[in-house]
Design a protein around this nucleic acid. Structure first.
Lengths: 213, 213
DNA sequence: CGACTTAGTGTCTGAATCACACTTATCAGC
DNA sequence: GCTGATAAGTGTGATTCAGACACTAAGTCG
């Protein structure tokens, strides 16, 4: 089957930088490419937009198909449109940033992706296409937005301790926070509600909070 | 000439919301469409991306071709990708926000645009396609970014008074500012440098400033 | 039951923000 | 050339916010 147009049309794809926290460290989800070009190289999950879906739906679908995960938070942050960024044909990449809680770690491969795997952001393999640049910008964007705190909820389970939230904040922004000031800031933002339950670890139990409103 | 692909490709266009200040009020540049669909309706300037240019270049070129203006500041802020947003075929719109000083007001029509004209944002005609939604989001985005002040330089001539800067701030954010606090804030930001010249109006002359560094 | 570890709280200090009123320089009109 | 109107420009005190600081509380583990 062939599709013909009077003027040249670019291909349009979404690429998704999915982040999670594992053992306190920020990780990104990569796939090993199962086809040319860059066969065998690691890349961000993503793929071409279908005629009947918008770009958000495309990002969600590709993520599900290639890695088996569904992100709570998923939003567009930049486009990449250099004419020769893909050697096959002209492909405009619509880049998405996604976040998910650390316990949903079941990842699966597919026909396009030989395998999917979490990598700590400090220890990445070389990436296909211009995906290193996309990832760099995704990290910068995430760091800037994390200051608002509410985005971080997407990296944590539905109920979390303030210490967990602070650890997420520090992992994402790269800056250390003072415990008391951080708690004051978060509680003053009115973005969490305390529950009556506590997390029991190996020491004093910590009160569990959940996202407010 | 025809272009054939194995899979359907969307058309990709840029649409540009260009803002300026005229007599203290924020205006947006619209064109009257010279072709179907929406012949005769007002719309944001924009057009299809060419094979050899990236999206930024496309936005600059379309703006120049359709309205004769060149923007100092031009950046992407959102995509619009509903499958049926254009009745002709599937068109993904990459939306740009642009700013220019109020004195560059020479605007011209072209083959695609019967005419180009500035409209105050409080008094807009109905717009073609989903351009009302695009414009709404552009205004929200501009308002949020204007708080950093530096963007506003693009709406003013190279040298400007602090009163002009404050008026621009108020026009764009919609919030009033206290004169002394605004001046303290701007000077504390180290983003302007004072010159030795003054603007002479009908009252006490005001010192002229220019963008720093 | 004692030692260890993490959770959790109160206060002081300096910085930034906000609200407020007066003086200065020019132009226009008489 | 004096007067009045208008916008430019400046200083200060009150309040609020951010940051540094040290201790007590409640569990677990040996």
């Amino acid at each position: 089957m062939a599709f013909t147009y009077a003027y040249p049309h670019p291909a349009v794809a979404t690429d998704i930088a999915v982040f999670t926290l594992r053992r306190g460290a920020l990780h990104v989800l990569l796939i090993e490419r199962g086809g040319e070009p860059f066969l065998g190289a690691w890349a961000l999950p993503g793929g071409f937009v279908q005629p009947e879906e918008d770009l958000d739906a495309c990002a969600r679908r590709e993520l599900q198909e290639e890695t088996g995960v569904e992100a709570d938070v998923l939003f567009h942050f930049a486009n990449f449109s250099a004419p020769a960024r893909d050697p096959r044909e002209r492909v405009i990449s619509v880049a998405y940033l996604a976040l998910m809680p650390s316990d949903e770690l079941r990842v699966a491969g597919s026909s396009d992706a030989a395998q999917a795997q979490w990598f700590p952001i400090g220890d990445l393999p070389p990436l296909a296409f211009d995906h290193e640049e996309i990832l760099r910008q995704a990290l910068a964007n995430l760091g800037a937005r994390a200051r608002g705190v509410t985005l971080l909820f997407a990296l944590l389970p539905p109920r979390f301790t303030l210490s967990q939230l602070q650890a997420a904040y520090e992992a994402v922004t790269g800056e250390e926070a003072e415990k008391r000031n951080f708690r004051k800031m978060v509680l003053g933002l009115d973005c969490v509600r305390e529950t009556d339950d506590f997390a029991h670890g190996s020491h004093r139990p910590a009160r569990l909070y959940e996202a407010a409103a």
